[in-house]
Simulated scan of single mutants.
Amino acid sequence: MEQNIFEKMGGTYIKVGDYYVPNLGQFEDEEETDDRPLGKYGMLRRTYLEEHRKPLYNHLLLSGELHSHLRDVNEQAQQMIDTLLPQYKVKQGVTEELKAKEQLLWVGMVNNIIAQIEEIIYSEVVYI
């Protein structure tokens, strides 16, 4: 079988789906090794970058750092929730006794605390 110019110059092909395409490195699965979930806050960050910070979005996308950045944002937001939720519960008097006695009040107070924490996350992590 006769080689084309690409193969004569040392190029190779890679099978993607049902097709063979030139192996230029664009199908290397570097992002696949990061198995952390993208999550709610990562997706919100991606939407924000696409709509309001287009140059940064394009830079992250073209450098291959976008998915890692989005996963980092989600992880940072989750850590903030894990840290702040117990602190806010203590500060606002949301206890297990309240949960046992008045469940609806407890749920409302916890939802209010989560909304407060999410506002902090949006202003300090997602929408910057």
Rank of each mutant, 00 (worst) to 15 (best):
E30C: 01
W106N: 10
H69K: 05
I114K: 10
G64T: 01
H67P: 04
K91Q: 11
I117H: 09
M80I: 09
Q78R: 14
Y13S: 07
F6P: 05
Y127F: 13
E124D: 15
T83L: 14
F6A: 03
E97L: 13
N111I: 04
L49T: 02
S68Y: 14
Y19H: 08
F27W: 14
Y127L: 12
F6D: 05
V90T: 09
K91D: 13
R53D: 12
K8V: 02
G10F: 00
R53L: 08
E97I: 09
H59P: 05
L24R: 04
G39T: 05
H69Q: 05
P55Y: 07
E124C: 08
V94F: 05
N4C: 13
D29V: 02
D82V: 00
Q103N: 15
M109C: 15
L60G: 00
E32A: 15
S63C: 06
Q26R: 02
H67Y: 14
V110L: 09
E2A: 13
R53W: 01
E102S: 15
L98E: 14
L49Y: 05
Y48V: 05
V21F: 11
F27K: 04
L49H: 06
Q79P: 03
L61C: 01
L60Q: 01
L85C: 02
F27L: 07
V73N: 09
A77E: 13
T12E: 15
E65C: 09
E28S: 09
G17D: 05
G42C: 04
H67S: 12
H67G: 12
G108W: 06
L24V: 06
H69S: 07
Q92G: 03
N4P: 05
E96S: 12
R71F: 12
S63M: 06
G17C: 02
A115W: 02
S123Y: 03
L104K: 14
K91M: 09
K89V: 00
V126K: 00
Q116E: 15
H69I: 00
L60M: 02
L85A: 06
Q26G: 07
M43A: 10
N58W: 12
K91V: 01
H59C: 10
L60I: 00
M43I: 01
L98C: 13
L56F: 07
L98V: 07
E119L: 12
N74Q: 10
A77C: 14
R71P: 09
E7I: 06
H67C: 07
V90D: 15
S123Q: 13
L61W: 10
S63D: 14
V126W: 04
E96I: 04
L66A: 02
D34I: 03
E7M: 10
Q26T: 01
K91S: 08
N74F: 04
A77N: 12
N58A: 12
V21T: 04
E65R: 13
S63E: 13
Q87C: 06
E102M: 14
D35N: 14
G42K: 01
M109G: 14
S63P: 03
Q87S: 11
K91F: 03
G93N: 04
H52A: 06
E75R: 05
E51A: 10
P86V: 00
I81P: 06
L38Q: 04
N58D: 15
G10C: 00
W106I: 04
E102T: 11
G93L: 02
F27I: 06
L44E: 14
Y57Q: 01
